[in-house]
Simulated scan of single mutants.
Amino acid sequence: MSVWDRGLPLIALLALIGLAVLQLATFAIARRIGRYNVVDVVWGLGFVLVAVIAAIVGEGPANRRVLLLILVTVWGIRLSWHMFQRTSGGEDPRYTEMLARYGSGPGVALRRVFLMQGASQWVISLPIAVSAAAGPTRGAGWILVVAGVLVWLTGFAFESIGDMQLKRFRANPDNRGTIMDRGLWAWTRHPNYFGDSCVWWGIWLIVASAWPGVLTVFAPALMTYVLIRGTGARLLERTMADRPGYREYQRRTAYFFPRPPR
């Protein structure tokens, strides 16, 4: 049986519908509360939604469906809770800058923020859908599963520890007006984004353990591109560029991939 016979079209369709409903509902909430950064809260939850659909509808091996459901759910809920706490303080400067450039009307925000995010979620989550409809993992494929879990654990550690270190740094009044350059933030200017990328490369390795999962390599590549060049690190660097000490921090600290500080 092929992935088409094991429910891939239905999984992909239900995921598309579910993400569209989620983003439209989030847009309505954003309009009501007057800030668009609430979209960040549902970034992780959207992937959890797809993982749940894939685990229920897919006809591939249950052990792999459950493993991916657990990994995506743990990552997604932690991230969404973190973003819920972080975004409650006011609008994200990244969205302010984006909407100032392209227009601040609700139609622009819907297209460029919410629907764009929903489309990205759907494409990036395709490996989960493919894996849920793929055949069993055989032979040396289990090496990829183990490697994928290890890469996922590395990414989850970078992301969660980096977020925790930054939260503690900001909570200390003595650090006001200074640049966070300690812990993981001394090794990379974006440990959370680097960790996020690793999480999805780890998921792809698990998916690649059964044909045709290897063909979905475009998904973690897209996620990494979004984190580095899209709405992630690049926009954040632009908003931070004029802060005192940030240029020096850039000179001594890696942009994305960790290395010892200079």
Score class of each variant (00 low, 15 high):
1 M>I: 02
45 L>A: 10
45 L>D: 06
46 G>V: 06
51 A>L: 06
52 V>Q: 04
67 L>R: 06
67 L>E: 06
69 L>C: 06
69 L>Q: 03
70 I>P: 00
73 T>F: 09
77 I>L: 14
83 M>K: 04
90 G>P: 02
92 D>P: 02
93 P>N: 12
106 P>V: 03
106 P>A: 08
114 F>R: 09
116 M>I: 01
117 Q>V: 01
118 G>L: 03
122 W>C: 03
124 I>T: 14
124 I>M: 15
124 I>K: 08
137 T>L: 07
138 R>N: 04
139 G>I: 04
143 I>P: 00
146 V>A: 15
149 V>W: 08
151 V>I: 15
151 V>A: 09
152 W>T: 03
152 W>F: 15
156 F>H: 12
158 F>T: 02
159 E>N: 10
160 S>E: 02
167 K>T: 11
173 P>W: 13
181 D>L: 02
188 T>R: 11
189 R>L: 07
193 Y>H: 13
194 F>L: 03
202 G>M: 07
205 L>M: 12
205 L>K: 05
208 A>Q: 03
209 S>Y: 09
212 P>E: 13
216 T>L: 10
219 A>Q: 09
219 A>E: 03
221 A>T: 14
226 V>C: 04
227 L>S: 09
230 G>Q: 08
238 R>S: 12
251 R>P: 00
258 P>F: 12
